[in-house]
């Protein structure tokens, strides 16, 4: 994980990053909520881990128009949970399949499965820990970049796209 150093660097072709004192408390809380809301959705979504992903998509679409800072954290949180969601769903599927095919016997739960099980456990712990860190940083008005997903989100939210915003500019005209 890479931490933002607040060095005031602005990449050419990217929007400048807001500094903590430029953000409102509401923006900081909405950004933090993007991470914390996922834990509630994750708990509610068990044993169907896909539900938290749906919640993340809804949260992103509700909050994306608020500000770039909130949009960044909402999308960051959404992207970061895609791999753990897929891994969790695969584990649930594999477990059920083993239980159905082997009945009372546990011989289907071989080392291949057990290796995957512990990989998923570690992935979830990492996701949990780094999400808490990201939530705390967001509450302080700071950025926090997960490996891969941080760069991907920054690219999508802060990159300046030509013609961006033009559609929103309505032009008032007198009656014909």
């Amino acid at each position: 994980m890479e931490q933002n150093t607040f060095s005031q660097q602005v990449h050419a072709g990217y929007h400048s990053l807001p500094q903590p004192d430029e953000l409102t408390t509401r923006e900081k809380e909405d950004a933090m909520g993007a991470y914390l809301m996922m834990f509630a959705a994750l708990a509610a979504g068990l044993p169907l881990p896909i539900i938290n992903l749906i919640a993340a998509v809804i949260y992103y679409f509700v909050n994306k128009s608020k500000s770039r800072f909130v949009r960044f954290h909402s999308l960051h949180s959404l992207y970061a949970q895609i791999p753990t969601t897929i891994m969790n769903a695969a584990l649930v599927f594999w477990t059920v399949r083993n239980l159905v095919s082997c009945g009372e016997s546990f011989s289907c739960f071989d080392d291949f499965y057990i290796g995957y099980f512990w990989t998923v456990v570690i992935a979830n712990i990492l996701y949990f820990v780094f999400s808490i860190i990201a939530a705390v940083k967001a509450r302080k008005g700071q950025f926090y970049y997960f490996i891969f997903f941080g760069k991907l989100t920054y690219e999508q939210v802060y990159r300046i796209i030509e013609g961006e915003g033009e559609k929103q500019q309505a032009v008032n005209k007198p009656p014909v």
Partner: peptide, 13 residues
């Protein structure tokens, strides 16, 4: 991901 899975496959918990 591959390294963690392989590790737990060859050195089961």
């Amino acid at each position: 991901f591959g390294a963690i899975w392989s590790f737990f496959y060859f050195f089961p918990v």
